[in-house]
Design a protein around this nucleic acid. Structure first.
Lengths: 201, 201
DNA sequence: GTCTATATCGGGATAGAC
DNA sequence: GTCTATCCCGATATAGAC
C-alpha cells in the first residue's frame, strides 16, 4: 500500500472512531507512520485528506446495501439488511459526520454525506415499493416516508446504543421496527408468519 | 441572572450548537461576557462546566415528554409527542452528546446521557403498554422494543435532516412511523381510522 | 516524495492582585 | 468574586534541505 493510500485509510479509521474535528494531522501521522513532509505533500490540508477519507468510508458502506435491491422476497431483503451485523457501539461511519460541528458547517464535507444518504434512500424506496407491489405491505404505506423511517431507526439505534453503552437498545430498535412491519402486513385471513411464500390461498 | 447561571446557560447553548469538544472556554467567555477569573472561580475545569450544562439541557428536554404519560388516549399521546415541534436541523441537545468523541470516552459526561435516555425509555414504555392495554396496539407488540424503535426514529431523524440540510426527512421519518403504528393497529373488522374511540362495536 | 526545523495560534488552564 | 497576566501544549501548517 502506498503512502497516499495509507493516509486515506488511516484518516478513514480515525474519522469513524473520533470524527473529523477531533482527529489531528498528528494522530494520522502517528498511526500511519507517514512523515510530516509526506502528509502535506499528498494533502495540502487536513480537510483535503478528510474529503478523500470520507469518500472512502462512503464507498465502504454503500455497497453493503446492495442486497436491498437484490432478487428475492422484498421483505426478506429488508429484514436481512436491517439485521446484518453492525458494530452498534461504533456507530455509522457516514451518519456520524452529521454531528461533527466542523463538518456541519462545511458544505464541501457535508455534501458527500448528503449524497450517500440520498443513494441509500433510493435503495430503500425501491425495496419498499417492491414489498408493496408484492402485497407484503399495505397500499397505504408510502415508500418514500417509510424509507426515511427505517434509515432513522438504524441511525438512531446507534445513538441509543452509545448512550447506554450497550448494543441491546440498537437491536431492540431494529427488532421493534420489524415487529411493526410484520404487524402492518396486510393479512386478510390468517396471520401465519412462518410461511413467507405468496401462496394464492 | 447571576454569573454562574450565565455560564451554565451559555455552555448549554454552545453544547447544543457545537457539542463539547469543539466548544472552548474562550467561546463561553465571549458569548456570556463573563471574565476569565470568574469562569474558573465557578468551574475549575471546562468539564465541570459541561456537566452542569448537560444536566441543564436534560432538564430542558425531559419534561417535554411528560405528555406521554398523559391522561388521554395513549395513541393520541404518542402521536402528539412524536409530532411536537422540533428544530430538526439543530438536533437533540442530549442525543448529540453521544457523537462527541470526548463525551463518549468520559464516563462522567456520558452517564447523565444514559440516565436521560433511560428515563425517556421508561416513559415510552408506559405509554405503549397503555396503548396495548387499550387495544390500540396488538398484543404481539413488545413495548420495550418499540419504545427503542420510536426513540431511534427521532434521534435518527435528526441525522437525516442534517445530512440533507432539510427537515423533510425528519418529518417523513416520523410520519412513516405513525403510518406503521396505525397500520399495525388491531382492526378485527373494518379498518375505519377516523374514529379513534373504543366503541364496543 | 520525504525529512527536520520552525512558526503561529488557540485551548485550557494557573497566579496573584484587587 | 472578578481582573489581568502568564504558561505550556498541541493543532495546523510552512520552509527548505535531501
Amino acid at each position: 500500500m502506498d503512502t497516499r493510500q495509507r493516509l486515506v485509510e488511516t484518516m478513514s479509521e480515525l474519522m469513524w472512531e473520533r470524527g473529523y474535528a477531533d482527529t489531528s494531522p498528528r494522530d494520522v501521522r502517528e498511526r500511519s507512520g507517514v512523515g510530516q513532509g509526506s502528509l502535506y505533500h499528498h494533502f495540502p490540508t487536513k480537510r483535503d485528506l478528510a474529503v478523500a477519507a470520507l469518500e472512502r468510508n462512503i464507498d465502504d458502506v454503500l455497497p453493503a446495501s446492495s442486497g436491498l435491491e437484490g432478487p428475492g422476497d422484498p421483505i426478506a431483503r429488508i429484514e436481512a439488511y436491517l439485521t446484518r451485523p453492525r458494530d452498534a457501539l461504533k456507530g455509522c461511519k457516514v451518519g456520524r459526520m452529521t454531528q461533527d460541528p466542523q463538518v456541519r458547517e462545511d458544505p464541501v464535507l457535508l455534501a458527500p454525506v448528503g449524497r450517500a444518504f440520498a443513494a441509500m434512500h433510493a435503495r430503500w424506496v425501491r425495496a419498499l415499493r417492491d414489498a408493496v407491489a408484492a402485497g407484503e405491505l399495505g397500499p397505504e404505506i408510502d415508500p418514500e416516508r417509510l424509507a426515511h423511517t427505517l434509515m432513522a431507526v438504524l441511525q438512531g439505534g446507534y445513538v441509543l446504543a452509545i448512550a447506554h453503552q450497550d448494543r441491546g437498545p440498537f437491536d431492540d430498535a431494529v427488532a421493534g421496527a420489524l415487529d411493526l412491519l410484520r404487524a402492518a402486513a396486510p393479512a386478510p385471513s390468517g396471520t401465519n408468519r412462518q410461511n413467507g411464500t405468496n401462496s394464492e390461498e
